[in-house]
Amino acid sequence: MQRVPVGLLSMNQQDPSLSGNGKNLAIVVKQNGRSTVQLKDIQNGSILPLRHLSRNQPHSSPSLSWSGRYLAVITQRGNRRLAVIEDRLKGKFYRLRLTGQRDPIRLSIAPDARQLAIQMAYKGKLRVEMFDLTNMIEPDLTLGISGS
């Protein structure tokens, strides 16, 4: 097995999530004391731009689609957590509101971006629910990967 340097030396970094193709890595780092999601190119360690995710910290549980086009992450709005998706290709931003008193805790977007799994707290219990995203965003192309 080969260890890959990712150009991440001195910062405290947490919550890694690889893109489906293994080329990008989303992590959560402390920036000015606030947990902020950051996207890296694994090949050269460079930081990739995120247009909509410089606010609403703390960020947690980032998750990437196949090419890294979509980044899903949990943000904070007032005293509620809010799941969001940034479409890096089109520069769009989607807020994913859960009905009732359900707070997202962790999430995972499918490589093809057709579905999303959200771990949430509901009535004192942890549960995972699945959501269909096909009405909201176009799929990310998963080259050579079908899931079978």
Partner: peptide, 20 residues
């Protein structure tokens, strides 16, 4: 998903498969 365990956490979704 609700029927199969009392609680679930840490989802990992990959097209056809969901690990929790």
């Amino acid at each position: 998903l609700l029927e199969t365990s009392l609680s679930k956490r840490d989802p990992s979704l990959s097209i056809r498969w969901l690990a929790t």
